[in-house]
Simulated assay, not measured.
Amino acid sequence: MKTLIIEGVRTVAPKIKRFDLKAEDNGPLIQFEAGAHIAVQLKDGSSRQYSLIDFGENLPYENQRYTLGILLEQDGSGGSAFMHSLQVGDAIQVEAPKNDFPLIEDDRPAVLIAGGIGVTPIISMAAALKRAGKPYTLHYSGRTLETMAFKEELSELCGEALTLHHDDVPARCLDLGALIPTLDTSSHIYVCGPKGMIEAVREQALSAGFGKEQIHFELFASPAPSGDDAGDGFEVEVKSSGEVFWVPQDKSIVDVLEEGGVDLVYDCQRGDCGICQVDVLEGEPDHRDVVLTDDEKAAGDVMHICVSRAKSKRLVLDL
């Protein structure tokens, strides 16, 4: 953990604040690449992840500050409320930058798609692509123009590469069904935003001829649990050992199996990296990831155990 000081705080849109952070000793910070995030420690010892923003203002790797853009979520888990309570001069503990959403280093053009506060990692991608002289376009969507943060900075950064979409003007809504078929299918697509947007982009892009390896995404919040998690919970059987674990409503399969000593491989814990995928031998999963296609979800033979749950009373997993 490293101690950072809040150097600046300002409101950039309704319920969205920009935070500029500096090192406690005013020294240089660890460099980061587009798509990276830091984990901020909360008062209870838990942590929340926030994307790092690079507006292209500094030369590459001369990072004297980190910038975050954070939406206050009324029904969130407390991270945004903690961050919005901070003032200039306050200290926070953060982990080193980590990148689960990197730009692919090749010569293909890039299409950047952002929804709401999911624009934060996309800003850094636009800055990196512009510095590298690589072709890109950015489609940024929000419910209203007023609620869209950083649109002025993006306009200055991206120029004609930027298109703003907002639902309060019907002619300006983001129509993925119209947009995606017009894209060069050799492009990489990077999308960050709500789960529904990510799923729609993936399905439309796959139908338009894009390969799965060309579609990159990050969910800006953990998928919210629904109200019917198979009653109070469900059982998970580990096939290799025959052990059976009870998964309550307030814990994930990963949480329970790790507590039980099962060796697991996972990373994002948001359902958008795919690393925790396991085969389902029996039972019906309740898919809450954004990795699997509709057909893969319907087949029900694999699942992502960091966020997905069960519709049946028991799952038997190939672990």
Results as ranks from 00 to 15, higher is better:
V290L: 04
L42R: 12
I122A: 01
L68V: 06
Y66E: 06
V316C: 05
E156M: 07
F234I: 09
P248R: 13
P181K: 06
L112S: 05
G45T: 07
D175Q: 13
Y266H: 15
A224R: 14
R314V: 04
F82I: 08
T163G: 02
R270M: 14
E213V: 05
M148H: 01
G193R: 00
A36C: 08
H37G: 03
V247C: 03
Q49M: 05
L145W: 02
I198A: 01
L112P: 03
R131T: 12
E7P: 01
T185P: 06
E218F: 08
G274K: 08
A205M: 07
R108M: 14
D25P: 02
K134T: 05
R18T: 13
Q87S: 13
E62T: 10
L219H: 02
P14W: 08
G261R: 09
D294K: 15
A128V: 09
G260T: 02
P194G: 14
G227N: 12
H287L: 09
H287A: 05
D301T: 15
E259G: 14
H84Y: 06
P97S: 11
N26K: 13
G300W: 05
V278R: 02
G69Y: 02
E57G: 02
K195V: 10
R108K: 15
I198P: 01
L315V: 11
D255R: 02
E73K: 04
G261F: 11
D75N: 14
V201P: 00
G159F: 04
Q31S: 14
A91T: 13
I92H: 01
M303H: 06
M197I: 12
V201E: 00
R108G: 02
L4G: 00
E156F: 04
F101H: 05
G177V: 03
D44K: 06
C306D: 00
D44W: 03
F82A: 05
F210N: 00
D294H: 12
K313M: 08
D294I: 10
Y190G: 07
V169T: 13
I215Y: 01
V88Y: 03
I6E: 04
E213S: 13
Q93W: 05
H139A: 04
G177Y: 00
V247D: 00
I30L: 12
M1L: 13
K98N: 11
H188K: 07
D294P: 07
K134A: 13
I189T: 06
A200R: 10
F55V: 03
S80V: 10
L257G: 01
F217H: 12
V256S: 03
I123L: 06
D54C: 09
G283D: 06
F150N: 02
E203Q: 14
L21M: 04
E258A: 06
E258N: 12
D228N: 13
A110Q: 08
S222L: 12
V9F: 13
P14V: 10
E146Q: 14
E33A: 14
D294N: 15
S207R: 10
